[in-house]
Design a protein around this nucleic acid. Structure first.
Length: 432
DNA sequence: TCTGGGGTCCTAGGACCC
DNA sequence: TCTGGGGTCCTAGGACCC
């Protein structure tokens, strides 16, 4: 059996831990630049706020319905996630942290009543961390996800499923007819791996529920759609096709892209932004001990500004030798942006992507023509990472990312960010 | 006025090879 | 008029996930 545990409305719940006055109120957490809603409390969902709704379109609800909108505080969410995951790991022997707010846990070899065990862990996370969670259990990942969706729905929408399935649902512990009834009550769009496109196509051929999909012939499904959907069909019938990966594989590509807080028109500002993005991407690259062999950079205007002249361009270049050196990568990214830049546009977004990654332990044969000795550069990057890890991001940086005191024209807008309650001594809550 | 960011996998088609 | 067969690699695009 496999369990899937996830935090309810995770970002909104994290904020509530430190601001209890937000309980029972509609709360949304906004994306970067306070652009759109990326997390919603149940009350916010009840107001009809959709995932990804632009903030300026729902802003009126602050006045009308007491909506509270907060800027994303990813440092807080990451730290809360770590705490939640360490408790969730207690469910079984192996855990795959699937995203910031959910994990799979392998329950193989766990004796006793799994529902009771899940209940205990859930209560512990709620008491110790303050985050409400739901847990789904099933013989495959897809069924565990589905069980989780049922547990959430049974809690949030009374009457959608039997009430005793709220918060915890174990699809592997029930009879065939009971499970079939639950699948029949679940829209096929709820199934993990079935997105909007597939869901529309499936509805067209009369496959409306999860049970309908489970009863399709996987061979025919593969022929008509893909091997991915065929695996979903098999998983729905209890045949595992997806394995639990408890060791996260290295990333195959690493990106850092951002929308700007306001339109940017000048090349120097773009270069400053792209330097910063490259530095962040390079740091992620070094953290997984990889090197990149290709670098892509892009700049673009905003497709939402209909009156602006539109321009979007990117370029990928191979590196002379694989590298994780912020200096080398920044030079290349800036060269690309200089090449792509055309004056007279309102640029809204830029980004860097590092690709064709490989382990930095694979020794590269060098012709020895490089004047900057690699070892010195490696030590420099180590020092850079150590200093920034100890003293905070950006303490030591290339001059090309801008100098202190000079306002960044491209800076992100974050007007409603809560303090780093758990990640900064200066911002720890004070009890009086 | 104001619309996020970061990933994965699969497939089809073209280039190229013998 | 008639114009092989089989394979690999790469890329762009599509679909999905959170």
């Amino acid at each position: 059996m496999i369990a899937l545990l996830d935090g309810n409305n995770f970002y909104a719940s994290c904020e509530r831990v430190f601001q209890p006055r937000l309980k029972n109120r509609p709360v949304v957490v906004l994306s970067n630049n306070d652009g759109c809603a990326i997390a919603r409390s149940d009350e916010a969902k009840a107001l009809g706020i959709k995932m990804g709704a632009p903030f300026f379109k729902i802003r009126h609800l602050e006045e009308e319905a007491g909506l509270v909108a907060l800027s994303a505080n990813f440092a807080l969410y990451g730290d809360m996630s770590d705490r939640m995951m360490s408790l969730a790991a207690g469910l079984g022997h192996r855990q795959e942290v699937y995203s910031i707010d959910e994990c799979f846990v392998d329950l193989a070899g766990i004796p006793g009543d799994l529902v009771q065990r899940a209940r205990t862990i859930r209560a512990r996370i709620h008491q110790w961390i303050g985050i409400p969670t739901c847990i789904g259990i099933g013989p495959t990942k897809t069924l565990a996800k589905l069980a989780n969706a049922i547990a959430k729905s049974a809690e949030r929408k009374p009457g959608s499923y039997p009430a005793h399935l709220a918060q915890i649902c174990h699809l592997g512990a029930m009879g065939d007819s009971e499970r079939a009834a639950l699948l029949a009550a679940t829209d096929v769009a709820e199934v993990w791996g079935v997105g909007p496109r597939l869901s529309a196509q499936l509805h067209q051929v009369g496959t409306r529920t999860a049970l309908d999909l489970a009863r399709m012939d996987p061979v025919a499904v593969q022929r008509r759609w893909s091997i991915v959907l065929a695996k979903t069909v098999r998983e729905l019938n209890g045949t595992p096709c997806l394995t639990l990966d408890d060791i996260p594989p290295d990333k195959q590509q690493i990106a850092c892209t951002r929308s700007f807080g306001q339109p940017v028109t000048e090349l120097p500002d773009l270069l400053e932004a792209i330097s910063e993005f490259t530095a962040r991407a390079a740091q992620k690259l070094r953290r997984q001990n990889s090197q990149a062999s290709q670098l892509m950079a892009f700049i673009r205007t905003s497709p939402f500004r209909k009156n602006d002249r539109q321009y979007s361009a990117y370029r990928t270049i191979p590196l002379p030798a694989p590298s994780s050196d912020t200096g080398h990568l920044t030079e290349l990214a800036c060269a690309i942006v200089r090449h792509l830049y055309k004056p007279g546009h309102n640029y809204a977004k830029a980004g860097v992507m590092l690709m064709d990654l490989q382990s930095d332990s694979t020794e590269q044969l060098s012709l020895g023509l490089d004047s900057q000795e690699p070892e010195t550069r490696t030590r420099l990057m180590n020092a850079l990472d150590n200093i920034n890890s100890k003293w905070g991001r950006g303490t030591l940086h290339l001059a090309s990312t801008g100098t202190a005191g000079k306002a960044k024209a491209w800076a992100m807008k974050q007007e409603r960010r809560t303090p780093g309650y758990t990640t900064d001594w200066a911002q720890v809550l004070r009890a009086r």
